[in-house]
């Protein structure tokens, strides 16, 4: 049975590692729904947050194959209820539809979207939330004309995981033995 999983991959910060990470998914023809790359709380360690919909059994195998990569320190997977996650979406809409306190302005208010910039011909709105929330705002604004739209990949903080620091400490300790 397919479910949505968030895979977090912690790697050394080097050129090409993203390629190695994605190859593990593409070899098994798994579609990556979203991917976000950033640094972690530890200098020199990067983290990738990858969302896929697959069976848990397959995701478990993929995670082990990710960890097999020489420069991957740790890979873990979680179900949606085991992570706190967010996405950010930006919407560029014509300024005139927002002006004058009409329906569009109500929509923006009801979604608690932030106004990032107002230019004479366009306004940029920001909304953070789950995919369904940013999507709803998109759908409600659509009739007024969306000039440009972008949504980030999911970023996620895990509820149950050990701290990365303690994992790295253990890895470093293993190696000095």
């Amino acid at each position: 049975m397919k479910k949505r999983f968030t895979v977090s991959v912690f790697t050394e910060d080097i050129v090409g590692i993203l390629n190695r990470v994605t190859i593990v998914f593409t070899r098994r023809k798994i579609n990556i729904e979203s991917i976000a790359a950033s640094e972690s709380e530890i200098d020199g360690i990067h983290r990738y947050t990858i969302v896929v919909s697959e069976s848990e059994e397959l995701v478990r195998k993929v995670v082990l194959q990710l960890e097999r990569q020489v420069e991957v320190l740790k890979a873990v997977y979680h179900k949606d209820d085991e992570v706190i996650y967010q996405e950010i979406a930006l919407y560029k809409v014509p300024t005139n539809v927002l002006a004058g306190g009409g329906e569009a302005e109500k929509i923006v208010r009801s979604h608690f979207a932030r106004v990032l910039t107002v230019e004479p011909d366009f306004t940029v709105l920001e909304k953070t939330g789950h995919h369904s929330e940013t999507q709803l705002l998109f759908e409600e604004l659509e009739p007024y004309g969306i000039l440009e739209f972008v949504r980030s990949g999911r970023i996620a903080i895990t509820k149950p995981m050990r701290t990365l620091r303690s994992i790295v400490n253990e890895l470093e300790l293993n190696n000095t033995n």
């Binding site: 790697t11 050394e12 020489v70 420069e71 991957v72 320190l73 790295v168 890895l171 470093e172 293993n174 190696n175 000095t176």
Partner: peptide, 8 residues
């Protein structure tokens, strides 16, 4: 080369 933390 002796060891690297990401590879056990």
């Amino acid at each position: 080369f002796v060891s690297m933390r990401s590879y056990q």
